[in-house]
Design a protein around this nucleic acid. Structure first.
Length: 413
RNA sequence: CCGGAGGUGGCAGAGUAGUCAAUUGCACCAGACUGUAAAUCUGGCGGGUUUUCCCUACGAAGGUGCGAAUCCUUCCCUCCGGA
């Protein structure tokens, strides 16, 4: 891959540089999720201050509101949201899952508890009543009912790519299917084959329309498109999908991660072992503290995850091991707990972020309890800073050949 | 002082003889959260070491019922009119 260069390795972990029209990204890299063209509660100024290198936005959401045409008129997503660093857009494929099977059956992707690989997953409903799905999958693509107003829409590989071109993201994702999440091997295989056909159509559309980067004007670099590896928890399907993706695409994304942490590690290992060394790898939707270490250790370069932003809004704030973070608490404290009522310490005494150098747990708890807007800003700032800083430190340890030692000290104790 | 209305769990506010330890909301306590339908969701919320079990509870004290937060009597208190 001409735009991606690996500059250091430590075991399978690597440090790389990906060149895009909006700058060079040093990997491993974590992308905060900004579904609706905003990382919830943070401004681009905050993101720059924190050192965020790239954000991820979503095709499905932006297509419905405000519409890709509008954003194109503004000169693309970068200008529209005033973010001049790299942007990646997701294809909308994940919404095939989150507005489909997930709505019907509830549940989250990665389970804390162990499950038996290859066995059908029992998804746990999030709300009391499971709701009717808002989509229907056909060969052509997916027909959706908008979650906003119920209006009907169709998303196809061609349409997804077109929108992603209109948005002008630096990195884009082929349209993929997740329908198999709850099904058996046969269903999984069928779903994977659909993802492969949709992948080829995405690629064809991408090549057919050519690539015009809108911002900066006359940008020379093409949008880099990820193909998505699926196959559930089945090794042979994952390997097959990895090889297929590697054969056709310049970048490899790993999607459809469902199951426990052990399964997650296995899937990543199967995939990274089966694809070209020199292509960037993105683990879609994953990014808890433990997962970052495990993913990077197995050769993953890019992560994106809603966890830091969503957790922040819900009172869950990251802390490092020396401040009490551990696997069992997902390296977080819950600021809602009454024990923080008069706690003068910052969220994490070892953190150097703006929030931690200026505000107490007591104050943050107060803001949370009082539903104050500032709580969201300060808490999200901390969580994003924490993860960005952690990944930055991991990059340093890879360069120094100290990654394993750092990981051991951090999560394996 | 007279007339009227009313006193229910931290607050607001249902219930008006048995299925009421008491609907609901708020507050509070705790848990969850992984390509964001998430500033969301779930559970708890009188006490007793689990319980289809016991105790204490619907202003207070008596009373009528097999049975009372619910009916009666007296008392205390609050609010609204009128002197």
């Amino acid at each position: 891959m001409k735009n991606f260069r690996i500059v250091a390795k430590d075991g399978k972990a690597r440090v790389g540089l990906l060149t895009t029209s909006h700058g060079v990204i040093e990997t491993p890299n974590f992308n905060p999720v900004g579904t609706q063209a905003t990382v919830k509660a943070l401004s681009p100024k905050d993101l720059n201050e924190i050192g965020v290198q790239m954000v991820l936005a979503n095709t499905y959401h932006l297509m419905l509101r405000p519409g890709a045409d509008l954003i194109e008129k503004f000169g693309g997503l970068h200008k529209f949201m005033n973010w001049d660093k790299p942007i990646m857009t997701d294809s909308g494929g994940f919404q095939v899952f989150s507005l489909g099977a997930a709505l019907e059956h509830g549940g989250s992707k990665v389970l804390r508890k162990n499950t038996t690989p290859g066995v059908e997953l029992k998804l746990h409903p999030r709300g009391v009543n499971s709701k009717p799905r808002l989509n229907k999958i056909i060969e052509e693509g997916v027909t959706f009912q908008s979650h906003i107003d119920g209006s009907k829409h169709i998303l196809t590989p061609e349409k997804s790519i077109k929108i992603q071109q209109q948005l002008g993201a630096d990195l884009i994702v082929a349209f993929d299917d997740h329908e198999s999440a709850k099904h058996n091997y046969g269903e999984m295989q069928k779903s994977l084959e659909l993802t492969e056909r949709w992948g080829l159509r995405s690629l064809k559309e991408h090549k057919r329309t050519g690539v015009k980067l809108i911002h900066p004007p006359g940008g020379k670099l093409e949008q880099l498109m990820y193909g998505v590896v699926h196959g559930g928890t089945h090794k042979d399907l994952r390997v097959r999908s990895a090889k297929f993706t590697d054969e056709h695409f310049d970048a490899v994304a790993i999607g459809g991660i469902y199951g426990d942490k052990q399964t997650l590690c296995s899937i990543v290992e199967w995939v990274t072992s089966a694809v070209s060394e020199e292509k960037p790898r993105h683990l879609l939707g994953i990014g808890e503290v433990e997962d970052l270490f495990n993913g990077i250790e197995r050769g993953v370069d890019f992560f994106d995850c809603v966890a830091p932003t969503r957790r922040a809004r819900n009172g869950s704030l990251y802390i490092c091991p020396k401040s009490g973070g551990k696997k069992s608490n997902s390296y977080t404290l819950n600021i809602r707990q009454s024990k923080f009522f008069s706690d003068k310490k910052p969220i994490d005494p070892r953190c150097n972020c703006y929030t931690c150098t200026n505000f107490s747990r007591s104050y943050l708890r107060h803001l949370y309890m009082a539903d104050e807007i500032l709580y969201h800003e300060l808490s999200t700032y901390h969580n994003i800073f924490f993860i960005i800083d952690l990944v930055k430190r991991i990059r340093e340890t890879i360069k120094d050949g100290e990654f394993k030692k750092f990981k051991r000290g951090y999560i394996d104790r």
